[in-house]
């Protein structure tokens, strides 16, 4: 796969580090009870289809970004702002 780093452009997937599901809303710092955090940390939609996820261009500019990708096809939808 080639991933579109917002800063460096298309780069091979081997330059990136995966950061998991980005569709989940992280509770604001200092908020959220145990159940909210449990759901945020441990439960996943895990869709077979469109997915938004975090990636970091870790062997490059170190930019984190949200990416749209289809988990059924690996088709890249592009960076999500």
């Amino acid at each position: 796969m080639m991933l579109p780093c917002p800063h460096c452009g298309d780069r091979d997937v081997s330059e990136f580090r995966y950061g998991g599901d980005a569709s989940k809303e992280r509770p604001a710092h200092g908020t959220g009870d145990l159940q909210t955090w449990n759901d945020y940390v441990f439960l996943f939609e895990n869709p077979k289809g469109p997915h938004t996820e975090y990636w970091q261009h870790v062997l490059g500019c170190r930019r984190w970004f949200k990416l749209a990708r289809n988990t059924a096809t690996n088709e890249i939808g592009g960076v999500v702002s």
Partner: peptide
Amino acid sequence: SHVAKMAGLKLPVES
């Protein structure tokens, strides 16, 4: 996840 979702379950699982 895919099958459990049909039963309304959200799980601590990724594929």
